[in-house]
Design a binder for these strands. Structure first.
Lengths: 168, 168
DNA sequence: ACCGCATGGTTGCACGAACAACCGCCATGC
DNA sequence: GCATGGCGGTTGTTCGTGCAACCATGCGGT
């Protein structure tokens, strides 16, 4: 049997053509390289893993610099248990505190501390610089726009097909 | 599209503007959703995690359906130790075998078994279908091209900035 | 031939994350 | 009022991965 053959064609049965492969594998590789590089940089210069940084960012952008655990989890793309542990670490490091919720006794807020705010301010600069030099600097304005629109079209379907959190 | 709302165009100091944020966060979210969805699908329908699938793909494409552990590791973006364990699992499941290297006694090949080849053939169909429906179907030809060229520009720098494997 | 030194692969260990089970609390039903 | 079901958060466990340390082998110098 020779599966050989078949380069061309887009029909569903066949392999990916060259351009498709480039777009798809590129996505995987770029994501892997970028997140690894940015995480390493952030950890090296501020002792702050990328996921922790993301938490701080979302908190800082939120009303009162606090968010419900649940919302935070879906913002940073983590499971509830994953976020619990991550918040444990951040609380231990004094970058945020847990705060009970008045209107719903089940709920808990994670709230940025001044220390967390300061840490974020420092880290933000390096991270943004990294994103710019490693990623954005290679993009023209119209490419930026293309990417954005592509993501907007892809995301709903992908998020919906992914396990959990399908509020589509 | 530069709807004058123009957030202050940013030099390196400031935050990301809206388009930049969309492009960047979109990349993260799309990757997360896609890989999670595809992994779940592959695991559900063939009991094969995505990373294992990737190994089989690269092996099948290689001369003699075998590759050196080292090359395989860098192909699937895994550390050497990570690949060792992954190959352990695949060997245990009978999808590949280790084979010693005649020309270099240190080296080891991972070689696809007929069972592995068959498993891949089955899995490939579902995976490619998934990639198409969740990702490629949303892209026009010129967008495909844009993505490819963007990745090509971004990758060298990112791969170089990432720890390990910097042959730049 | 011998000695460093680099390279390929495996192992011990630690860490981060997911899953499932659980508990306390809200919001309905009767 | 009290039951039921759903939701928010935490805990026990397991799994996959990276790092560092460790052979064993290859390679180049002297």
């Amino acid at each position: 049997m020779s599966t050989t053959t078949t380069v061309p064609t887009h029909a569903d049965g066949g392999d990916l053509d060259e351009a498709e492969l480039r777009a798809w594998r590129g996505l995987l590789r770029v994501h892997a390289s970028l997140s690894k590089a940015l995480d390493a940089q952030l950890d090296r210069e501020h002792g702050l893993p990328l996921t922790s940084y993301e938490v701080l960012v979302y908190l800082a952008d939120a009303e009162g610099e606090k968010m419900r655990m649940c919302d935070l989890a879906s913002s940073v793309l983590l499971s509830r248990s994953g976020l619990t542990r991550l918040v444990d670490r951040l609380e231990r490091d004094g970058l945020l505190v847990r705060e009970s919720c008045a209107s719903d006794a089940r709920g808990a807020f994670a709230k940025l501390t001044p220390a967390g705010h300061a840490k974020l301010a420092a880290a933000r600069a390096t991270h943004l610089a990294g994103v710019r030099t490693l990623f954005l600097s290679h993009l023209g304005a119209e490419e930026l726009e293309v990417l954005g629109s592509v993501w907007d079209r892809v995301l709903p379907g992908a998020a919906c097909a992914a396990p959990d959190a399908c509020d589509c």
